Simulated scan of single mutants.
Amino acid sequence: MNKEFEKDVVSCLNILLNGGIILYPTDTVWGLGCDATDEAAVQKIIELKNRPSNKSFVVLVDSRERLKQYVKEVEENMLQYLQTVQKPTTVVYENAIGLAPGAVAADFSIAIRMCNDEFCSEIIRKLDKPLLSTSANKSGEHTPRIFKEISDAIKEGVDYVVKYRQNDERIASPSAIVKWEKGILNVLRE
């Protein structure tokens, strides 16, 4: 790990442990994030994005074990499917547990992605909790694909902006979203 990476991880942990929000690179697009179990932090993101409070978020985990801590039931078929996909894939699970109420949909479902990104995984491991993740834009606006496309309003509205990968020009796209219902895979977004 390089020094910038390590410094950003330490800075993010300090902010997250104190109820703050970060602007950070993920395995897809740049995101706004917080401790997914901290309701006050989730509400800060809702306010910053001007997002309807009834809209749920994506939560990032670093492992199957952590996933199973926040969902009552995880089907083995879904985990096997995830091993076959090339694109980052978010799964909508029923019966979320242990997450901030504002992160979860009204029907108690939650969208969770097992993140393979080194930076995100390091933060999740050290925080020992999942990260809330949502695109770094105001609700209804275009999703930024690289750091330079993120508005100043978003950058100024967070407690910490990660420096790592700000100069990365690789165009990113949002994850695929799927839902496993009664043994049938439903693709909600490719």
Score class of each variant (00 low, 15 high):
71 V>H: 02
149 E>I: 00
164 Y>R: 03
65 E>G: 12
104 V>Y: 10
77 N>T: 13
146 I>G: 01
132 L>F: 11
120 C>N: 09
81 Y>D: 04
75 E>P: 01
165 R>Q: 11
14 N>R: 13
36 A>Y: 01
57 F>M: 09
186 N>I: 13
123 I>P: 01
80 Q>P: 00
30 W>Y: 12
100 A>M: 12
108 F>P: 00
143 T>W: 07
187 V>R: 07
65 E>R: 14
128 D>N: 15
47 E>V: 14
139 S>V: 07
24 Y>R: 04
147 F>D: 06
130 P>R: 07
184 I>M: 05
73 E>F: 14
176 A>P: 01
124 I>F: 04
128 D>R: 10
135 S>R: 04
187 V>M: 05
104 V>T: 10
50 N>S: 15
66 R>T: 12
125 R>F: 06
176 A>L: 10
24 Y>P: 02
46 I>M: 05
13 L>G: 02
25 P>C: 04
28 T>H: 07
113 R>C: 12
184 I>G: 01
177 I>Y: 03
89 T>L: 09
26 T>H: 02
54 N>W: 11
27 D>T: 02
164 Y>A: 01
2 N>A: 01
143 T>H: 09
158 V>C: 12
99 L>P: 06
109 S>L: 09
76 E>N: 10
26 T>D: 01
146 I>E: 01
156 E>Q: 14
161 V>C: 15
172 A>W: 00
171 I>S: 00
82 L>R: 10
35 D>G: 03
145 R>A: 15
113 R>D: 12
6 E>V: 07
18 N>R: 08
164 Y>T: 02
160 Y>R: 09
87 K>N: 06
176 A>I: 06
134 T>G: 11
157 G>E: 10
54 N>D: 15
175 S>W: 03
104 V>A: 13
167 N>I: 00
161 V>Q: 11
148 K>W: 00
52 P>W: 05
21 I>A: 11
23 L>H: 10
